[in-house]
Design a protein around this nucleic acid. Structure first.
Lengths: 326, 326
DNA sequence: ATGAAAGCGCTAACAA
DNA sequence: TTGTTAGCGCTTTCAT
């Protein structure tokens, strides 16, 4: 692998001349520059970014840490991130923690291989985030509620979205509206539950604990719950599932039990994953602005990178997608 | 940011002692080590990976270059990559080219920021790949047919999968089987067409050019084609779409036209995306072994990284998923 | 217009 | 058991 020095030697000039010549610095004569470029080509010289990063103390790279790539919105999120990063001449690199035992995490964040990070991963521990966040490594945290220095927050309005969809159910005249939640410790889930609760209470409906069920955000858990629910005698007349995966599981189970949706029981989800437009009936859901989330998160990261530390948490509005299941 | 030197000074020892102490090298006395560790903690010292990479001329990092993350299989692929990479103590970093104008590509591959790469992106140009592939940067190319030094190939058996699904249609008794293809220049598409052709010819059916249609792998193109096809007088009795997206578009269009599937017309896709299990009727498709693809690609990359350059292209078998649309 | 030299933070061979 | 030193490939200040 040819280095700057090799090029310099071959061209009969010094490394510094080559270095600046490659930046098209006007200080170097046209003729020498041309010669240098020729040799670069001939030797197949490629700059060593690592050496450059070391010298510059900057990588022009930011990490986007996702739990897994399977989720339906990551693509949109990353597109948003990229659109902003590009303008700053930064490259986002994506890493998913699942299965990686945190090796990549450590390499990227703990060992200064990136200038900043955007994290959407409920499984990365708060202690780790606390440890790595610093003025030289600001972190934007999505969908989590952790208040730490050098950590900035952006989230969708889970509570508002849930409030809206449940209000919609109430308006439609449904009386006994069940909530099928995800993991208790999930921040999103809590907010969605809060929205459910507030919507119910604002209509003078007390939250009935017999109408609260817990799944784990998987389709499977929704399916299981749907089977037991559908078989019980006191069926609710509507269900708000805290995410679409579970809603789809519920839908499948209830349909198999011969229940008509929404006539026998209405069903709404959250996330607006692609599948919800294809189920029969199409699923009412709440859309999260993932692209905007990516945009905003990245903008905030750059503000922090530029020394701005007074950044308030941002909450982005969701959008209710009314379809045929309600 | 504290450096090794800072730690050394504070501990009253030399940098090399600190350096090896942090690797738990038995050469350094327990007591000094303990003191060093204490200072490390106190100063919040974090090793600078960049400096290390420079010295070591190795990043223990590999790039996984995807076109976008929206695809349904990337998650599985990456999981496969990670499972193998972990065993070699390597970290995969993912980058998607879409929208990035190749900035990230250049930074990663051209400037030696990774030790190797796995590429699944039909839009990265051959000339670029040729330029960057080298003994010190081997590349594993997925689903492409480019024969270059230091470039190794792994692909699903697109042709075989297509052959199998079309044979299945023939066995079922369908006579006029149409092919709805993707972009002409797509390597996958060509192979799938070859499979279609071979299956037809092996049954003595000539390929009828009036039964060959071209879309662009999007649902939208399938939908448009479906509308025009469904409205024509000479409807085929089965369609093999070169991917599920188009098949789903076709399905939607044909259903809207009141055609019954598979009674009026049968339909099969390719890729086995998640959605195909949820359409009505469920879509017959061909499953690609994405996880294995990730595994095999990564294994090959490590073989190459270890100096093995005699590596034959690998083709992995697909699996026919017969569902209700045929 | 070009060169010499220092130094980014680390590792490892060699000395002590 | 610990320290000295050179050097990875680059950028940049200061001379010339």
């Amino acid at each position: 692998m040819a280095t700057l020095k090799d090029v310099a030697n071959a061209a009969g000039v010094s490394v510094s001349t080559v270095s600046i010549a490659l930046k098209h610095d006007p200080r170097v004569k046209e003729t020498t520059k041309r010669k240098i470029l020729e040799i670069v080509d001939q030797l197949g010289y490629r700059p060593n970014g690592i050496a450059r990063d070391l010298k510059m103390k900057s990588t022009q790279t930011m990490a986007v840490l996702l739990h897994d790539l399977g989720g339906p919105f990551y693509s949109e999120l990353v597109t948003g991130v990229q659109d902003v990063a590009l303008a700053y001449d930064y490259s986002p690199i994506i890493s998913c923690s699942i299965g990686g035992k945190g090796v990549a995490l450590k390499r990227l964040l703990l060992e200064n291989r990136v200038d900043g990070a955007i994290i959407l991963d409920p499984y990365i521990e708060e202690s780790f985030i606390r440890r790595v966040a610093s003025p030289s490594l600001p972190i934007v945290l999505l969908d989590r509620d952790i208040d730490l220095p050098y950590v900035y927050r952006v989230t969708s309005d889970h509570e508002g979205g849930a409030y809206e969809v449940v209000s919609h159910l109430i308006e439609k005249g449904y009386q006994r509206i069940a909530f099928v939640g995800g993991p208790q410790r999930s921040f999103d889930n809590q907010l969605r539950f809060n929205g459910y609760k507030k919507a119910m209470e604002s209509q003078g409906k007390a939250v009935d604990s017999r109408l609260i069920f817990a799944g784990d955000f998987t389709e499977k858990s929704g399916y299981a719950l749907g089977l037991s629910l559908g078989g019980s005698d006191k069926l609710p007349d509507a269900i708000f599932a805290a995410n679409d995966e579970m809603a789809i599981g519920l839908l499948r189970a209830l349909s198999e039990l011969g229940l008509k949706i929404p006539q026998d029981i209405a069903l709404a989800g959250f996330d607006d994953i692609r599948l919800s437009q294809y189920t029969v009936p199409k699923l009412t859901s709440v859309h999260q602005p993932m692209y905007e989330l990516g945009i905003v998160a990245t903008q905030i990261l750059f503000r922090a990178l530029n020394g701005d530390s007074k950044i308030e948490p941002v909450v982005l509005s969701t959008q209710l997608m009314i379809r045929d299941s309600t």
